[in-house]
Design a protein around this nucleic acid. Structure first.
Lengths: 124, 124
DNA sequence: AATCAATGATTACAACTGTAGTCTACGGAT
DNA sequence: ATCCGTAGACTACAGTTGTAATCATTGATT
């Protein structure tokens, strides 16, 4: 899985929404959020093809693109990378930050409990 | 709090270990891990001064540097930024990744439980 | 006083990023 | 057959990053 920039990630997000997809489709999806210049998006698509973050197939005049890896795999990899760099690879210091800073709701806590239950069922 | 690069973060880490500190001290700390070229470190220090991630004071021939913000504040900000970009700002999807991928130990789970208990004491 | 060594300042330089504009080729419209 | 719009390819260009080398200053040494 290649290194991609934050902007490239945004474009990939649009592609993960559904693929294969044409540049036009991707641009439309992106523009739901904020205006993107067509040329900018196409440049980013080309760059991601080159770095093999996405693939394409020629369909008549144009290309249809597909992601080269799953969103989950990428976000997990990035999460682990951040934990490695900032928290000695541990998850709990990060969670601790959130717990202590009043960033969590009752629902979040309930979800966390469920996750723990699940872990204990699987392991425990 | 400014944007800093991954390499700049490494240098800041060394500074957070103890400050104010001279370039020499910082270089020595960094070299405990892996070799850093003196010039490289000094360039990074200058750049961080310019972007106001660190400050310095002249002490005779040389400078002593200090971080412009606390490590915790920075790592928390970066964590929130990652969650915002990849998980709609939510913590639990990230935790879920880790729970499901067998990345956690019994100790981690116990710590998580404690954090939850703490939250419930503070809020609940 | 002349020279050296260490420090920060300045310069270098390629790769990557963000953001587009220009070029070229081809399928469709006239 | 000709012209045009659209798609991707190529070019542009400044800012950031990683990684250093060179320049200039100054306190220390001979």
């Amino acid at each position: 899985m290649t290194e991609i920039s934050k902007t490239e990630f945004d474009v990939l997000e649009a592609l993960w929404q559904g693929h294969p997809a044409t540049a036009q489709q991707i641009i439309e999806r992106l523009n739901n959020d904020k205006p993107w210049h067509e040329k900018t998006v196409k440049t980013l698509l080309s760059r991601m093809v080159k770095k093999e973050a996405i693939s394409f197939e020629k369909v008549q005049r144009s290309y249809v693109y597909s992601p080269a890896f799953a969103r989950d795999d990428y976000t997990f990899k990035e999460s682990k990378s951040l934990l490695a760099r900032m928290f000695s690879g541990r998850l709990t210091p990060l969670v601790s930050h959130f717990v202590k800073s009043d960033e969590l709701t009752k629902d979040d806590i309930d979800e966390l409990k469920q996750l723990i239950d699940q872990w204990e069922k699987d392991n425990g």
